[in-house]
Design a protein around this nucleic acid. Sequence first.
RNA 1: GCCGAGGUGGCGGAAUGGCAGACGCGUCGGUCUCAAAAACCGAUGAGGGCAACCUCGUGCGGGUUCGACUCCCGCUCUCGGCACCA
Length: 820
Amino acid sequence: MLMETKPRRSTYVPQEIEPKWQKIWVGRGVMKASDKSPKPKYYDLVMYPYPSGDLTVGHARNYVMGDILARMKRMQGFEVLHPFGWDAFGLPAENAAMKRGVHPETWTLENISKGKRELKMLGILYDWDREVTTCMPDYYRWTEWLFLFFYERGLAYRAMSPVNWCPVDQTVLANEQVINGRCWRHPDVEVEKRDLEQWFFKITDYAERLLNDLQLLEKWPHKVRVMQTNWIGRSEGAEVDFPVVGHEGESIRIYTTRPDTLFGATFMVLAPEHPLVDKMTTDEHRTRVREYVEQARKETEIERLSTEREKTGVATGGFAINPVNGEKIPIWVADYVLVTYGTGAIMAVPAHDERDFEFAKKYGLPVREVIRPSESADGDLTTAYVGPGVMVNSGQFDGLDSNTGFDRVIDWLEEKGIGKRTVKYRLRDWLISRQRYWGCPIPIVYCEVDGIVPVPPDRLPVLLPKDYKPLADNPEFWRTTCPKCGRDARRETDTMDTFVDSSWYFLRYASPHDNNEPFDPELANHWMAVDQYTGGVEHAILHLLYSRFFTKVLFDAGMLDVSEPFVRLFNQGMVKRFGQVMSKSAGNGVSPDELVDKQGADAGRIYEMFIGPPEEDVEWNDAGVNGVVKFLHRVWRLVLEPESIVLTGPSAAADPDLLRRKVAQTVKNVTDDYDDLRFNTAVAYLMELANALQDYLQSGGARDEGWDAAVRTLVKLLNPIGPHISEEMWERLGEGGPERGLLADASWPEFDAAAAAEPQVTLVVQVAGKVRDRLAVASGLSKEQALAAALASDRVRAALNGSKPSKVIYVPNKLINLVP
RNA sequence: GCCGAGGUGGCGGAAUGGCAGACGCGUCGGUCUCAAAAACCGAUGAGGGCAACCUCGUGCGGGUUCGACUCCCGCUCUCGGCACCA
């Protein structure tokens, strides 16, 4: 068969070139970060994953984003730190172990090597010498060290407390891990309350700074800052003591954010768990109160916190005195008051609080108006009025604006010594104990004589035993001797929340093999802060708040120069398929293997960026990848086989100046878009440039130096997002290759503003705001010149219909609007 | 309920207050071919007109402006977060 009538054309076969370049990059150490480079540093970090063995191209999307940025920053002359690691402790490993009878460590390490292979086949480059795996003793030794570091500073403590217990995971959870009263891993499982002695980190000490410093995080998504602000939940108000009738010297302390409504307090409410409930209860109410308290304890968090539910409560029979007016008011118990917030007791002001109003109406308690929206309003209240206004029925404060009254009442309370200005936070301390095997041991020993004794740092790590069973059931693990007195003692058998591991991993990347300390402060300070942090929004509170807390503690200790870890944060959207988030377990995942096999890594990478705005959730469309494959074939042909492009007749496109301008403009647009993570439009600009190159050839453009430069610029701009094909083309163009140097090491194109400038512009001519003509005119026309040009147009004259423009708006080089 | 983001062709989506729909997918027509695929060329918001063109058009209703997808007010729907925190 005579197939070879035409000269044989090289074709783009991604499967042939991709492994080749991946090998060369690794061999050349392309993404190795040098600690001693004179270049400016750039720390490009993606949130390290849990090694679930479930890596799909959906998860890979944010790693590709990080890779694009790392590759461009390198070409721009930065020394880039682009590391990777594994959040390797955690429950799924134990669940898999139980299901399949394989040790959690085996399962985890297998998944890690699988994941690493998949990332590599997508052409994503990391400095693997800095890889961090949190379940390895050389890492968790330092997690333990940091625990002790916190302990010494009084930031880790043990306390008995009602805690959230997930019955499925058989462990306690932090507040941040409870969503609507349910476990964050099991949306259908309600958490239980249990009283347990547990370890806490004192994150509340940092509430104010964690809140205030959010203002420094200008390059964080607004949404995340709002979420953290709400989570910390700062409020200003006053604590006030209400003396109790019949109990000399006893008083109930309440917290209110509305001291200006103090005169409107007509009853008080204690939380069922409040310590004074029993004392306040009179004999004839005792049975009912006890029953109520008992019932409230039994209710789940969900039931209690439901705002739909009608409020319930019982009177104690006791009374207190409102200190501002000496009035005797009844004390109630109701579960709408939470013992965990404020003082666990409130003054109820039904006229100006919706919850108190509802309660007062139900139980026939008095409602007294003390804030009036305006002087003229009448005193009729059918709902609570919660806004500001004028104080009434408030003794010496009558007539004051309620905002002013807020401060005046507090001043008065402080003078009298019955109250004080107070700031409260909703943030609670971070519960870090977990009753699980596969986690970082808490390096503490309990001695009958010496009590809680920290394991001396030189005896770290406390190794996790190889025997997979609960630590509490493993005497070989917990039997030990007291580091202080040498007597028999017992080890702590809880492990740490895995969020402790992830609160400092970004510091370990700076000196991952340091055997003397968790991180080398000098190197950490060299690389920190993280310039770009990319990951899912699901960590908006949890991981990001904890990491900020750790950073501040280490800053205070003088170990870090920065008090905020992440300068710029980006939350990428999720990739869905058939309407659901892509995952292997859901059966709708596309694996890197499939993708690389079918269309190639480059097409996959580019498609994932082109599919939609990076911050939005996107729907994966199998056919959509083919559009990108087509684009890459076209680029291949334009760059390497330009002579095969046929003339398709006369066209005005074969203008070398036009081509040069287009190239210069594309440099600007693509660079800016990569920098701002607008990858979807960056791809569009690359496609436009390819279209322009094609138009140029099809209309007979010469393949001269201008053409050569244009092609080389396109290849460079394509490199961060489509690294294999561009590297191959670079070599075939005779520019690079293993001998002459890699495109990955080449310099990024400079923006040439002069070349990008348009000598001619399209002037839009409007008549009364409607477009009537478009004129090609020289750049920089004066208003008079522009008007003359506009009036020379037949279509404009027709639209004006003989009338003279009474007003002319001229936007140079853009538009002229004639208003008749 | 409160807070935040959003609503643009058949679809994914572009647009510092200045040409709405870049770029791509899909669809239709064409070239090439025995034929098909691929590739290439052209068309593609709606309505009207033989045509040059005209009218309408960015969730709904108002407003500001010479000019509004963009700014302001009110409404509506979708998504995300918080949800008795006194």
